[in-house]
Design a protein around this nucleic acid. Sequence first.
DNA 1: CATCTAATTAGACATATATTTAATTAGGTG
DNA 2: CACCTAATTAAATATATGTCTAATTAGATG
Lengths: 196, 196
Amino acid sequence: MQLDKMVQFHKATGDVTRIRILALLKKGPLHGQEIANKLGLKPPTITHHIAKLKDTGMVYARREKNTIYFHLDEKKLEFMATAILRIGEENLVKNQEMQMTEEEKQKIIKNFVTKEGELKQIPSQLKKKLVILSYFVQHFEPGKVYEEKEVNAYIKTFHEDFATVRREWVMQHFMYRENNRYQLNPKEIWPIVIEK
Amino acid sequence: MQLDKMVQFHKATGDVTRIRILALLKKGPLHGQEIANKLGLKPPTITHHIAKLKDTGMVYARREKNTIYFHLDEKKLEFMATAILRIGEENLVKNQEMQMTEEEKQKIIKNFVTKEGELKQIPSQLKKKLVILSYFVQHFEPGKVYEEKEVNAYIKTFHEDFATVRREWVMQHFMYRENNRYQLNPKEIWPIVIEK
DNA sequence: CATCTAATTAGACATATATTTAATTAGGTG
DNA sequence: CACCTAATTAAATATATGTCTAATTAGATG
């Protein structure tokens, strides 16, 4: 599970009112006003909270005539609630698949990076791609926040397709993205670490 | 698990930095400055986050010379993360144990409440106690927030030991308490409901 | 006891969030 | 199409929260 999705889930469940809503929906679907009555709150408040619950996917809406019923997706709730118990695991698995000698890593870099330090092309094979992503991402300083422009600018110094590289860094957990600003993830959660 | 403990747990895990700290601690204990370095944050920020994690019990500290190492209690983490999947269950169990006829309920009320509407004594048997607590709590309006004084004042109209009654309402999930202010929980999560 | 290091506290700042009232939208139904 | 109901949006307010710098505390060690 993606880091930001996980945070979003826990933010959603980190509120008394929303936990109460979940407790109610566990007994069966309800519509907004009914929830508002049972909790002693106004409808706009319920809209606000339901929106957050829906964003995570654990609650969904079904219309019936004029009334919208909200349902709890218990499978999704279970998956998300337990995701925190698996942090690091995906990476550990990958790390095992990713075991290779320093020699192999250096060979991959040699094959894809020119003498001038430019990336010839993005490898399609996952293993090789991760080596390359790890190699180039080390330019950034841990904890520093970068604007999207800055990230693009750096990528352009070694490869033209900046959008793909940027996206891959986020998808492969090398970087974390929040409102178009980027920062390095701690190496501990990278799928692979190349010492540059 | 108590409603407020559950909310506290999810608030604690609903933050990028704290999830990252958990991910790091899963690999083994670390001290503050090390965490700060790995995440690119200042020590006071780590203190702040660790405090919230410690409050939930999933992280604890052990001193070694001058350095304080923070450890992850994975058992506690698991218990708390899965608690949300069990909401309502405790109550359902209680409800089954608590099945009784209207006649029985009325008999209990008759035995413990005077003609003037005063509570003779708080029943010691759980079943009877819950009937009484449910009976008197219905005075409050759903969603309305009450100061502790107001709650006390109402209890005194029918019983002298206001502290015990107030505490029992919270302990038995009839009411929710936050910074000395009280409100009714939705009936759905009461262990038993008496129609007054 | 003086000094060093790690951790915490205090205070400031910016941002995010929960709730409300009032206004608006979206679908049904006569 | 006019009206009804349920839901949402907008705007306002109060509170909570994440992060930092600067100052302070707590222990360990020479």
